[in-house]
Design a protein around this nucleic acid. Structure first.
Lengths: 324, 324
DNA sequence: GTGAAAGCGCTAACAG
DNA sequence: CTGTTAGCGCTTTCAC
């Protein structure tokens, strides 16, 4: 920048103002500066700018698995929403591991990121104290609250009710669930909610019909196999997410179990592949794009100075396809 | 850091050395510093460090569509490979638009990123001059070369030959392709290569059996519809990638065209959903994880000082499933 | 084993 | 409309 100033015969402040437009610059001066910039193929140093202004143009998106289409879509939407403000999305994979979640939060703090959007998996509310203390806006996308952190969370009651109606209408009574791991923070709200609502429908979700594993295809297959080996076999299985449901389908194929004739299968999220598999997956749609937009909105408001906590509920929706 | 130094009763240089371990520090001094750090919940400012050292810990991954499972997987792998070196991946979506590709390259330059991995779509080789001139290592993952830039590229000859064998064995002769857009850089090598090899098999790929569109599901559907409306109907359709192939399947369902009885369908990439759809998609597998590892490797070598250009070929592989 | 001090490249008062 | 200048917070010689 000093070089540019010299070549253009002006001060470096003027160069800065030409670049930022934060104060008027005479046309000839501006032209001279622009010529010098082109001549020297000068590129402003965003690092120096960030140090000086204390503002970064990077937002971290911290998720358990970027290869999961739900999170990939979330990343795409967030990017789309934030790009207009000159913000970029740094995607970080935690593989659902607590240590990596912590490390990434610390990293975001060190980098003085403009903000963080995170789907925590094994983090506890007080893990957020340092980053919040550092003044970095954080938005959590999760089923459970993390205290004072802005939250985007599903409102799935109706969708689950609709699913149960459908299941009941098909004459099914023996509900099971392939849920997430026991040590995920907040337990498994999807499980609790399903259990509560099932009771209202006169069905039960007994402990022995709940199996657990990671949110992975493999775990879905294992879970399904386990449930099929029970003396009391379920006739409808809810899954923690669609990836698990796909794994369950894998195993059903392998075992020659017919879906939905022998057992109904209900996913969660409506990931892009849910309508691709056969039978097409009946699922609780939780729209990644909607979540991304809400998270972006919340973040932007914080960036604009909002101080009070806010929660946004995103309505989930029952999508009837062929697996029930 | 100055605060920490004051509280610990040492100089800020010492604090820096405690943090970096770049020179020995007496145990008591170190303890005092660490206590002060904890007391003040001090977090090092990565921006200031970057400005001073001229090194960033961020690598940009610039792709046409992060929601495409191929690129999502690429992102995940790159992250995994680079994390050990303390590098983070900034995922940037170009939506295949030249203007966005250019803007993102410029942004990476301004941010003085440690490196860039990019799948260019409408960029020309000289678009890379500024960033390369700025000394930022760039790795391109593409079918065509971008001159002096390190390249990860498919070696798909055998896989395509195998596909053609299969098609020929099924008694099919009328090959078609749903290719990418005409204005993509380097034209469409997948098309050229298919055409050349088809000739060797005594089949032809006439111009009127090539339709074009974006690498999107919608475009695949449109392309399939167009091909089905031809007087000279194909009996085997190759697709530019799996997303296009899925779109073609959508349309086949809609039109009541049976795959593979009426027409065979061959995808490209083996994206995660290829084995999920019914019929399962026969495809040319181009392994995203392999590409990611190769790109990471190339980048790391550059970071370690390699100056000479390098190209890595990743073997593609024919995956026979049910759509042929 | 430790400290003093220069300076990375920029922005934003302040002054004219 | 433009210039001067003081740092932002760190790393790294150089000196002790």
């Amino acid at each position: 920048m000093a070089d540019v100033a010299r070549v253009a015969g002006v001060s470096s402040a003027t160069v800065s103002y030409v670049l930022s437009g934060k104060r008027p610059v005479a046309p000839e001066t501006r032209a001279a500066v622009e010529a010098a910039i082109a001549d020297l193929s000068f590129t402003i140093n965003a690092t120096a700018r960030s140090l000086r202004t204390g503002r970064s143009s990077l937002v971290a998106l911290i998720v358990p698995d970027i290869a999961n289409p739900f999170f990939a879509q979330l990343a795409a939407t967030l990017d789309e929403e934030l790009r207009g403000l000159g913000l970029h999305v740094v995607v970080c994979n935690t593989r659902a591991r607590r240590a990596e979640e912590q490390a990434l939060l610390a990293e975001a703090t060190q980098q003085r990121f403009a903000g963080v959007v995170i789907t925590p998996f094994r983090l506890k509310p007080n893990d957020f104290e340092p980053i919040v203390g550092a003044g970095i806006p954080v938005v959590v996308s999760a089923d459970v609250s993390f205290g004072p952190i802005d939250l985007v969370t599903p409102d799935a009651g109706n969708a689950i009710r609709r699913a149960l109606e459908e299941v009941a209408a098909a004459g099914r009574r023996r509900i099971a669930m392939i849920a997430g791991p026991r040590d995920a923070t907040g337990g498994d709200p999807r499980l609790e909610q399903l259990r509560a609502l099932a009771l209202q429908f006169g069905m039960s979700l007994p402990r022995e019909l709940v199996v657990r594993g990671e949110h992975a295809r493999q775990a879905g297959a294992a879970g399904f196999g386990e449930l099929m080996s029970r003396r009391y076999r379920p006739d409808a299985i809810f899954c923690g997410n669609d990836v698990i449901a796909i794994g369950a389908m894998d195993k059903a194929n392998e075992l020659g179990v017919n879906i939905p004739a022998d057992v109904a299968l209900i996913g969660h999220d409506d990931a892009s592949f849910a309508s691709l598999v056969r039978p097409q997956l009946t699922t609780i749609r939780y729209p990644a794009a909607g979540v991304g937009r809400a998270a972006a909105q919340l973040l932007i408001e914080r960036l604009n100075g909002r101080q009070v906590h806010k929660t946004v509920h995103i309505k989930a929706e029952f999508v009837a396809r062929s697996s029930v």
